[in-house]
């Protein structure tokens, strides 16, 4: 059995508070910033950082091997690329 991460089991409360701060930031951006491309980019970026800390610290991915990290992160990077391409396509083929 692998218990490689057992020695790193202490919860990093700084990360927890950082995640809570990021939640406040995304809601602040959503409610108080006027709509537009900049708002979308900012919100998606902050959410991506929030997701990173969730994955890296709460899911303990940072304690896994480099190969496993790459096996998981490279396909996810492809998803973000696809997201960007389809967003641009949607604007190009807009109904209006």
């Amino acid at each position: 059995m692998n218990h490689s991460s057992s020695e790193h089991s202490t919860t990093n409360w700084n990360v927890v508070f950082l995640i809570l701060a990021l939640i406040a930031v995304v809601f602040g951006l959503a409610l108080f910033i006027p709509g537009g491309a900049l708002k979308t980019v900012l919100i998606v970026s902050v959410s991506a950082v929030w997701a990173f800390f969730l994955l890296n610290d709460l899911m303990h991915l940072k304690f896994e091997s480099k190969t496993l990290k790459l096996s998981l992160s490279l396909p996810i990077i492809f998803l973000f690329w696809l997201l960007g391409v389809l967003f641009l396509s949607a604007i190009f083929y807009s109904f209006h």
Binding site: L72, P75, L82, F87
Partner: peptide
């Protein structure tokens, strides 16, 4: 990871229509 692909399919579809409409 495979489940992330399923959700990404749904969310990218959402994003596509979100950007397609004014």
């Amino acid at each position: 990871l495979s489940d992330a692909f399923t959700f990404a399919g749904l969310l990218i579809t959402y994003g596509f229509f979100r950007m397609k409409y004014p």
